[in-house]
Amino acid sequence: MSTSNDHGFGTRAIHAGQSPDPSTGAIMTPIYQTSTYVQELPGKHKGYAYARGKNPTRVALEQCIASLENAKHGLCFSSGQGAEDAIIKLLRPGDEVIATDDLYGGSYRMFTKVFAHYGIVFHFVNMHDVNEINKHINDKTRMLWVETPTNPLMKIIDIRGVAAIAQAKKLMLVVDNTFASPYLQNPLDLGATIVVHSATKYLGGHSDVVMGATCTNDDKIQEELAFIANSCGAVPGPMDSFLVLRGLKTLHVRVQRHCENGKAVAEFLKSHPKIDKLHWPGFPDHPNHAIAKSQMRGFGGMISFTLKGDSLEEAFRMASSTKVFSLAESLGGVESLIGHPATMTHASIPKEMREKSGVLDSLLRLSVGIEDANDLIADLRQALG
C-alpha cells in the first residue's frame, strides 16, 4: 500500500515505507539477512552494495519512522547512543553545544567523557525559560540540544521558543523525542533541525531490541549523517529492523493506553501521603503545562516522584517491593518498570549536578505500561505501604 502524509497516523504506522514483497506477495517486509549484494557489473547494482550502507529491511523502517515524524529523511542506528554519537560528529573541535541540564545520563556521559576530549564544549542549562539559552550563546555555539519531556524530571521545554532562537542564530536544534514518541509530538513541525530517538523505547515497544533513529528535513545533514553511519558502522541489523518495524504497527494504540494508564497512576500518586513531589506534565500545576498542552497531543506514561524525607533506603525499599512494576532500566515497553535514576540511568552524572537539577536520592521513575490500570495502582499502593 502506498501512503503519504495525507493519511492518518495509524495508517502510516502500519503501511509507510512498506509494500508486499514483489517475489512472493508477503505482506510483512522480509528480513533481508545478507551482508552483500550481487552486482551486474562492477559498481552497477540495484541501490544495494554492502549491508553496512543499506539494507532493504532497514530502509523500510527508516521510511516509516520518517513518515511518522513528518520528516523527509530517516536513518537508523544500532542504539540511541549510536544515533547521538553520529549527530555530535557533525561538529568540529572548538564547537560548543548548549544542552538542557536535565537529560539522560548516557547522553551526559557521552558528551562529557567522550566528546569533550575532542575539543567540543558542552554547557548544561535549565531551559524552563528559553531566554536563559541566550546568555550562553557565543560565536562558537553550533548546536542546541533539547529533551522534552526531560529524563527523569519531565520538564517541558518550549520547542517553538528554542527553535526561534536557533533560527535567529543559525544554530542546529536537536530534539530528543524519545519520551513523547511521534504519536504525541513532532518536533520538526515546531522548528527542530534533527529529531533523535532511542527506538529501543516506545518505537520498538516490547523490550526486545536496541536501536536509535534520526529524522531531518535537511538534505545536507541527512547526507552527512548517512556518511557517518556508513563510515563508522553503528548500524542495526535486519532482524532488529524487522522487530522495530513490527513494533511501529501498534505504536498509536500502545501510546494511547500508556497515556490513559499514566493519567490514572499519576492521579493516584498525587493524593498519596508518602509522595512529596510528583512530576507528570498532565497536571495543570506542572511547570510549563500550557506549553506541553500546545505542543503535545497527550502527556504520556512517564512519571517521576520523590518520597517525603528524601530517604535513599525508603526509595530502595519501595523500588524492590513492587510485583507488577519490574525494577529495571529502560522504558517505553508494554510492561511497567520502576527505576531509581540516581543509581541507575543517571549514575554517571555527578551527585552535586544531579541534586541541583532535582534528581534527588529518593527520586523514582515509572514507565507506566499497558497492563490493567487497577492492577498498577494496587501494586504501587502495597509497595508504598
Rank of each mutant, 00 (worst) to 15 (best):
F9D: 01
G10K: 11
G10C: 01
G10A: 08
G10W: 07
G10D: 07
G10L: 06
T11K: 03
T11M: 04
T11H: 04
R12E: 02
R12G: 01
A13H: 06
I14E: 06
I14C: 02
H15K: 06
H15D: 03
H15R: 04
A16C: 04
A16W: 10
A16I: 07
G17E: 04
G17V: 07
G17R: 08
Q18A: 12
Q18G: 02
Q18P: 00
Q18D: 02
S19T: 03
S19C: 03
S19V: 04
P20A: 11
D21I: 09
P22F: 12
P22G: 05
P22H: 10
P22N: 06
P22C: 03
S23K: 14
S23R: 13
T24C: 11
T24F: 15
G25I: 10
G25N: 04
G25D: 01
A26T: 02
A26G: 05
A26R: 12
I27Q: 05
I27D: 01
I27H: 04
M28F: 13
M28C: 08
M28W: 10
P30R: 11
I31N: 05
Y32H: 06
Y32N: 02
Y32V: 06
Y32T: 02
Q33E: 11
Q33R: 12
T34L: 15
S35I: 12
S35K: 13
S35L: 13
T36P: 00
T36F: 11
T36D: 09
T36V: 12
Y37M: 03
V38L: 14
V38F: 15
Q39I: 07
E40D: 06
E40L: 15
E40G: 06
E40C: 08
E40A: 14
L41D: 04
L41S: 09
P42M: 08
P42K: 10
P42R: 13
G43F: 05
H45V: 07
H45D: 04
K46V: 07
G47M: 05
G47T: 04
G47D: 06
Y48C: 02
Y48A: 00
Y48L: 11
A49Y: 09
A49L: 09
Y50H: 10
Y50A: 02
Y50C: 01
A51Y: 15
A51R: 09
R52H: 09
R52D: 02
G53V: 13
N55G: 05
N55I: 07
P56A: 06
T57D: 05
T57E: 08
R58H: 03
V59A: 12
V59C: 10
V59R: 11
A60L: 02
A60Y: 05
A60H: 03
A60D: 02
A60W: 05
E62T: 04
E62K: 09
Q63W: 13
C64Q: 10
C64P: 00
I65C: 00
A66E: 00
S67I: 03
S67M: 06
S67H: 02
